[in-house]
Protein backbone atom coordinates (compact mmCIF):
# COMPACT_ATOMS: atom_id res chain seq x y z
CA UNK A 1 0.00 0.00 0.00
CA UNK A 2 2.75 2.42 0.99
CA UNK A 3 4.61 1.72 -2.22
CA UNK A 4 1.60 2.02 -4.52
CA UNK A 5 1.93 5.65 -5.51
CA UNK A 6 5.72 5.66 -6.02
CA UNK A 7 5.33 2.59 -8.24
CA UNK A 8 2.49 4.19 -10.16
CA UNK A 9 4.52 7.30 -10.79
CA UNK A 10 7.61 5.35 -11.87
CA UNK A 11 5.55 3.15 -14.19
CA UNK A 12 3.76 6.15 -15.67
CA UNK A 13 7.07 7.90 -16.38
CA UNK A 14 8.59 4.88 -18.10
CA UNK A 15 5.47 3.98 -20.09
CA UNK A 16 4.69 7.52 -21.22
CA UNK A 17 8.35 8.30 -21.89
CA UNK A 18 8.84 5.03 -23.74
CA UNK A 19 5.81 5.66 -25.96
CA UNK A 20 6.98 9.21 -26.69
CA UNK A 21 10.39 7.80 -27.55
CA UNK A 22 8.82 5.62 -30.21
CA UNK A 23 6.73 8.30 -31.87
CA UNK A 24 8.81 11.47 -31.52
CA UNK A 25 11.31 12.52 -34.20
CA UNK A 26 14.92 12.61 -33.08
CA UNK A 27 15.10 16.36 -32.49
CA UNK A 28 12.12 16.28 -30.16
CA UNK A 29 13.67 13.28 -28.53
CA UNK A 30 16.63 15.46 -27.67
CA UNK A 31 14.34 18.05 -26.12
CA UNK A 32 12.57 15.28 -24.24
CA UNK A 33 15.92 14.12 -22.85
CA UNK A 34 16.76 17.67 -21.82
CA UNK A 35 13.42 18.05 -20.11
CA UNK A 36 13.89 14.75 -18.26
CA UNK A 37 17.28 15.93 -17.02
CA UNK A 38 15.67 19.17 -15.86
CA UNK A 39 12.87 17.18 -14.27
CA UNK A 40 15.39 15.33 -12.09
CA UNK A 41 16.78 18.68 -10.93
CA UNK A 42 13.30 20.13 -10.40
CA UNK A 43 12.21 17.15 -8.29
CA UNK A 44 15.24 17.97 -6.17
CA UNK A 45 14.18 21.58 -5.92
CA UNK A 46 10.79 20.32 -4.86
CA UNK A 47 12.39 18.85 -1.71
CA UNK A 48 13.89 22.18 -0.80
CA UNK A 49 11.11 24.48 -1.90
CA UNK A 50 7.94 22.45 -2.44
CA UNK A 51 8.29 20.49 0.81
CA UNK A 52 10.54 22.47 3.13
CA UNK A 53 9.72 25.93 1.75
CA UNK A 54 13.36 26.93 1.16
CA UNK A 55 13.58 29.34 -1.77
CA UNK A 56 16.76 28.47 -3.60
CA UNK A 57 18.00 30.50 -6.55
CA UNK A 58 21.28 28.59 -6.52
CA UNK A 59 20.08 25.19 -7.65
CA UNK A 60 22.02 25.37 -10.91
CA UNK A 61 25.26 25.65 -8.92
CA UNK A 62 24.63 22.17 -7.51
CA UNK A 63 23.73 20.87 -10.95
CA UNK A 64 27.03 22.39 -12.04
CA UNK A 65 28.97 20.77 -9.18
CA UNK A 66 27.65 17.38 -10.25
CA UNK A 67 28.36 18.06 -13.91
CA UNK A 68 31.83 19.47 -13.32
CA UNK A 69 32.63 16.73 -10.82
CA UNK A 70 31.88 14.07 -13.39
CA UNK A 71 33.63 16.00 -16.16
CA UNK A 72 36.83 16.52 -14.16
CA UNK A 73 36.97 12.95 -12.82
CA UNK A 74 36.40 11.38 -16.24
CA UNK A 75 38.66 13.64 -18.31
CA UNK A 76 41.50 14.83 -16.05
CA UNK A 77 41.59 11.74 -13.86
CA UNK A 78 40.41 9.29 -16.52
CA UNK A 79 37.88 7.52 -14.30
CA UNK A 80 34.95 5.54 -15.62
CA UNK A 81 31.70 7.54 -15.51
CA UNK A 82 30.18 4.74 -13.42
CA UNK A 83 32.68 5.51 -10.68
CA UNK A 84 32.87 9.26 -11.25
CA UNK A 85 29.13 9.90 -10.99
CA UNK A 86 28.62 8.60 -7.43
CA UNK A 87 31.75 10.41 -6.25
CA UNK A 88 30.61 13.67 -7.87
CA UNK A 89 27.16 13.29 -6.34
CA UNK A 90 28.58 12.56 -2.90
CA UNK A 91 30.93 15.53 -3.11
CA UNK A 92 28.02 17.79 -4.08
CA UNK A 93 25.96 16.47 -1.17
CA UNK A 94 28.77 17.21 1.26
CA UNK A 95 29.27 20.74 -0.06
CA UNK A 96 25.52 21.33 0.11
CA UNK A 97 25.59 20.31 3.75
CA UNK A 98 28.51 22.61 4.49
CA UNK A 99 26.92 25.52 2.62
CA UNK A 100 23.48 24.82 3.99
CA UNK A 101 24.51 24.77 7.62
CA UNK A 102 25.18 28.51 7.92
CA UNK A 103 22.93 29.62 5.06
CA UNK A 104 19.68 27.94 6.05
CA UNK A 105 19.17 30.15 9.05
CA UNK A 106 17.91 32.61 6.45
CA UNK A 107 14.36 32.63 5.22
CA UNK A 108 12.22 33.89 2.36
CA UNK A 109 13.80 36.37 0.01
CA UNK A 110 16.96 36.55 2.17
CA UNK A 111 17.65 32.93 1.40
CA UNK A 112 16.65 33.55 -2.22
CA UNK A 113 19.22 36.30 -2.66
CA UNK A 114 21.91 34.48 -0.66
CA UNK A 115 21.60 31.42 -2.89
CA UNK A 116 21.55 33.73 -5.91
CA UNK A 117 24.86 35.16 -4.70
CA UNK A 118 26.14 31.62 -4.28
CA UNK A 119 25.26 30.83 -7.88
CA UNK A 120 26.96 33.98 -9.15
CA UNK A 121 30.05 33.06 -7.13
CA UNK A 122 30.01 29.55 -8.61
CA UNK A 123 30.06 31.11 -12.08
CA UNK A 124 32.97 33.40 -11.24
CA UNK A 125 35.01 30.56 -9.78
CA UNK A 126 34.35 28.07 -12.59
CA UNK A 127 35.21 30.63 -15.25
CA UNK A 128 38.46 31.73 -13.59
CA UNK A 129 39.86 28.55 -12.04
CA UNK A 130 41.33 27.62 -15.39
CA UNK A 131 43.64 24.84 -14.17
CA UNK A 132 40.72 22.90 -12.71
CA UNK A 133 37.72 23.79 -14.86
CA UNK A 134 39.25 24.91 -18.14
CA UNK A 135 37.81 28.38 -17.59
CA UNK A 136 35.10 29.63 -19.94
CA UNK A 137 36.24 27.13 -22.56
CA UNK A 138 34.69 24.47 -20.38
CA UNK A 139 35.52 20.77 -20.44
CA UNK A 140 34.96 18.87 -23.66
CA UNK A 141 35.29 15.21 -24.60
CA UNK A 142 33.48 13.80 -21.61
CA UNK A 143 33.15 10.06 -22.30
CA UNK A 144 29.66 8.67 -22.76
CA UNK A 145 28.14 6.08 -20.50
CA UNK A 146 28.26 2.48 -21.66
CA UNK A 147 26.96 -0.76 -20.21
CA UNK A 148 29.09 -3.51 -21.66
CA UNK A 149 28.82 -3.01 -25.38
CA UNK A 150 25.64 -0.93 -25.11
CA UNK A 151 26.41 2.78 -25.24
CA UNK A 152 23.94 5.44 -24.12
CA UNK A 153 25.17 7.85 -26.78
CA UNK A 154 22.26 8.31 -29.20
CA UNK A 155 19.12 10.17 -28.17
CA UNK A 156 17.10 6.92 -28.14
CA UNK A 157 19.58 5.09 -25.97
CA UNK A 158 19.98 8.05 -23.67
CA UNK A 159 16.23 8.33 -23.29
CA UNK A 160 16.16 4.95 -21.53
CA UNK A 161 18.87 6.03 -19.15
CA UNK A 162 17.13 9.33 -18.41
CA UNK A 163 13.76 7.62 -17.95
CA UNK A 164 15.16 5.03 -15.56
CA UNK A 165 16.94 7.66 -13.47
CA UNK A 166 13.92 9.95 -13.42
CA UNK A 167 11.56 7.09 -12.52
CA UNK A 168 13.87 6.07 -9.70
CA UNK A 169 14.20 9.59 -8.34
CA UNK A 170 10.48 10.28 -8.69
CA UNK A 171 9.56 7.05 -6.93
CA UNK A 172 12.02 7.79 -4.16
CA UNK A 173 10.60 11.30 -3.83
CA UNK A 174 7.05 9.99 -3.65
CA UNK A 175 8.05 7.44 -1.04
CA UNK A 176 9.81 10.15 0.92
CA UNK A 177 6.75 12.34 0.70
CA UNK A 178 4.81 9.74 2.67
CA UNK A 179 7.62 9.09 5.11
CA UNK A 180 8.19 10.69 8.46
CA UNK A 181 10.94 12.92 7.06
CA UNK A 182 8.64 14.14 4.29
CA UNK A 183 5.91 15.03 6.75
CA UNK A 184 8.42 16.77 8.96
CA UNK A 185 9.65 18.88 6.05
CA UNK A 186 6.12 19.95 5.23
CA UNK A 187 5.47 20.74 8.85
CA UNK A 188 8.56 22.97 8.91
CA UNK A 189 7.38 24.74 5.76
CA UNK A 190 3.86 25.31 7.06
CA UNK A 191 4.77 26.47 10.54
CA UNK A 192 8.32 26.48 11.74
CA UNK A 193 7.64 27.50 15.32
CA UNK A 194 4.85 24.99 15.81
CA UNK A 195 6.97 22.16 14.44
CA UNK A 196 9.83 23.14 16.70
CA UNK A 197 7.46 22.91 19.64
CA UNK A 198 6.42 19.39 18.68
CA UNK A 199 10.03 18.38 18.95
CA UNK A 200 11.16 18.56 15.32
CA UNK A 201 14.76 19.69 14.89
CA UNK A 202 13.95 22.26 12.22
CA UNK A 203 17.57 23.08 11.37
CA UNK A 204 18.34 19.42 10.76
CA UNK A 205 15.20 18.97 8.64
CA UNK A 206 16.05 22.00 6.53
CA UNK A 207 19.60 20.84 5.95
CA UNK A 208 18.39 17.37 5.05
CA UNK A 209 15.94 18.82 2.56
CA UNK A 210 18.67 21.03 1.11
CA UNK A 211 21.13 18.13 0.80
CA UNK A 212 18.48 15.91 -0.80
CA UNK A 213 17.76 18.65 -3.30
CA UNK A 214 21.47 19.02 -4.04
CA UNK A 215 21.80 15.25 -4.57
CA UNK A 216 19.06 15.32 -7.20
CA UNK A 217 20.70 18.39 -8.73
CA UNK A 218 24.03 16.56 -8.91
CA UNK A 219 22.36 13.54 -10.53
CA UNK A 220 20.88 15.91 -13.11
CA UNK A 221 24.32 17.49 -13.56
CA UNK A 222 25.90 14.09 -14.23
CA UNK A 223 23.15 13.27 -16.74
CA UNK A 224 23.70 16.66 -18.37
CA UNK A 225 27.44 16.07 -18.71
CA UNK A 226 26.89 12.58 -20.12
CA UNK A 227 24.31 13.89 -22.59
CA UNK A 228 26.07 17.04 -23.81
CA UNK A 229 29.55 15.52 -23.37
CA UNK A 230 30.61 19.11 -22.63
CA UNK A 231 30.25 21.44 -19.66
CA UNK A 232 30.98 25.18 -19.42
CA UNK A 233 30.28 27.79 -16.73
CA UNK A 234 27.42 29.34 -18.65
CA UNK A 235 25.45 26.09 -18.51
CA UNK A 236 24.96 26.61 -14.77
CA UNK A 237 24.17 30.31 -14.26
CA UNK A 238 21.61 31.76 -11.90
CA UNK A 239 19.31 32.15 -14.89
CA UNK A 240 19.17 28.36 -15.01
CA UNK A 241 18.31 28.30 -11.30
CA UNK A 242 15.41 30.64 -11.96
CA UNK A 243 14.30 28.42 -14.81
CA UNK A 244 14.24 25.37 -12.52
CA UNK A 245 12.14 27.29 -10.03
CA UNK A 246 9.85 28.47 -12.81
CA UNK A 247 9.41 24.87 -13.96
CA UNK A 248 8.35 23.87 -10.46
CA UNK A 249 5.89 26.75 -10.08
CA UNK A 250 4.44 26.35 -13.56
CA UNK A 251 4.03 22.61 -13.06
CA UNK A 252 2.61 22.91 -9.58
CA UNK A 253 4.78 23.35 -6.50
CA UNK A 254 4.90 20.60 -3.93
CA UNK A 255 4.03 17.84 -6.39
CA UNK A 256 6.24 15.40 -8.25
CA UNK A 257 3.95 15.21 -11.25
CA UNK A 258 4.02 19.00 -11.38
CA UNK A 259 7.82 19.06 -11.32
CA UNK A 260 7.96 16.73 -14.32
CA UNK A 261 5.19 18.49 -16.24
CA UNK A 262 6.73 21.91 -15.63
CA UNK A 263 10.14 20.74 -16.82
CA UNK A 264 8.64 19.30 -20.00
CA UNK A 265 6.47 22.35 -20.72
CA UNK A 266 9.18 24.97 -20.21
CA UNK A 267 11.65 22.99 -22.31
CA UNK A 268 9.26 22.58 -25.22
CA UNK A 269 7.51 25.96 -25.02
CA UNK A 270 10.32 28.01 -26.65
CA UNK A 271 10.37 25.36 -29.37
CA UNK A 272 6.67 25.75 -30.11
CA UNK A 273 7.20 29.51 -30.28
CA UNK A 274 10.05 29.36 -32.78
CA UNK A 275 7.70 30.34 -35.61
CA UNK A 276 7.64 33.82 -34.05
CA UNK A 277 11.24 34.39 -35.11
CA UNK A 278 13.28 36.74 -32.92
CA UNK A 279 10.12 37.73 -31.02
CA UNK A 280 9.68 34.31 -29.40
CA UNK A 281 11.18 35.35 -26.07
CA UNK A 282 8.70 38.22 -25.90
CA UNK A 283 5.79 35.80 -25.99
CA UNK A 284 7.56 33.21 -23.85
CA UNK A 285 7.72 35.74 -21.01
CA UNK A 286 4.09 36.72 -21.45
CA UNK A 287 2.94 33.11 -21.52
CA UNK A 288 4.77 32.26 -18.32
CA UNK A 289 3.28 35.33 -16.68
CA UNK A 290 -0.14 34.25 -17.92
CA UNK A 291 0.28 30.79 -16.41
CA UNK A 292 1.26 32.30 -13.06
CA UNK A 293 -1.74 34.61 -13.08
CA UNK A 294 -4.40 32.26 -14.40
CA UNK A 295 -3.14 28.94 -13.03
CA UNK A 296 -1.82 29.85 -9.58
CA UNK A 297 -1.59 26.17 -8.66
CA UNK A 298 0.20 25.29 -11.87
CA UNK A 299 -0.58 22.63 -14.44
CA UNK A 300 -1.34 20.09 -11.74
CA UNK A 301 -3.92 22.42 -10.25
CA UNK A 302 -5.47 22.83 -13.67
CA UNK A 303 -5.60 19.07 -14.08
CA UNK A 304 -7.27 18.68 -10.71
CA UNK A 305 -9.80 21.38 -11.45
CA UNK A 306 -10.65 19.80 -14.79
CA UNK A 307 -10.93 16.29 -13.42
CA UNK A 308 -13.02 17.47 -10.50
CA UNK A 309 -15.35 19.30 -12.83
CA UNK A 310 -15.81 16.57 -15.45
CA UNK A 311 -16.01 13.33 -13.51
CA UNK A 312 -15.50 13.12 -9.82
CA UNK A 313 -13.46 9.95 -10.01
CA UNK A 314 -12.68 9.16 -6.42
CA UNK A 315 -9.75 6.96 -7.36
CA UNK A 316 -7.95 9.69 -9.24
CA UNK A 317 -8.62 12.22 -6.57
CA UNK A 318 -7.27 9.99 -3.85
CA UNK A 319 -4.24 9.08 -5.88
CA UNK A 320 -3.38 12.74 -6.23
CA UNK A 321 -4.45 13.84 -2.81
CA UNK A 322 -1.29 12.91 -0.94
CA UNK A 323 0.66 14.77 -3.58
CA UNK A 324 -1.16 18.04 -3.49
CA UNK A 325 0.05 19.73 -0.41
CA UNK A 326 -1.61 23.08 -0.54
Amino acid sequence: MAMRIPLQIATAIIVLGGISGMVLPEYHLRLLNLSLISAVAVIGLNFAFGYAGLISLGHAAFVGMGGYGLAILTTTCGWSPWLAAPVAIAATAISAGLIGYPLLRLRGHYLALATLGLNVSFYIVTSNWIAMTGGTNGIARIPGLALGSFSFSGEHQFLWLALMVLALIAAAAAALHKSRLGREMIAVRDDEIASEMTGIDTTRIKIEAFVLSAICAAVAGCLFALHMRFVAPEDFTYAHSITYLAMLIVGGEGTIVGAVLGAVLLTFLPEWLRFLGTAYLFFFGLLVLGILVFLPTGLVGLGQRLSRRSAKTPLLASARAPEATS
Binding site: Y27, L31, M228, E234
Partner: peptide, 12 residues
Protein backbone atom coordinates in the same frame (compact mmCIF):
# COMPACT_ATOMS: atom_id res chain seq x y z
CA UNK B 1 24.11 33.19 -25.94
CA UNK B 2 23.76 29.63 -24.72
CA UNK B 3 25.61 26.40 -25.45
CA UNK B 4 22.49 24.36 -24.90
CA UNK B 5 20.42 26.43 -27.31
CA UNK B 6 23.24 26.30 -29.85
CA UNK B 7 23.29 22.50 -29.77
CA UNK B 8 19.48 22.38 -29.90
CA UNK B 9 19.46 24.67 -32.90
CA UNK B 10 22.06 22.48 -34.59
CA UNK B 11 20.24 19.22 -33.88
CA UNK B 12 16.94 20.73 -35.02
Amino acid sequence: ASNGTAVNAFVK
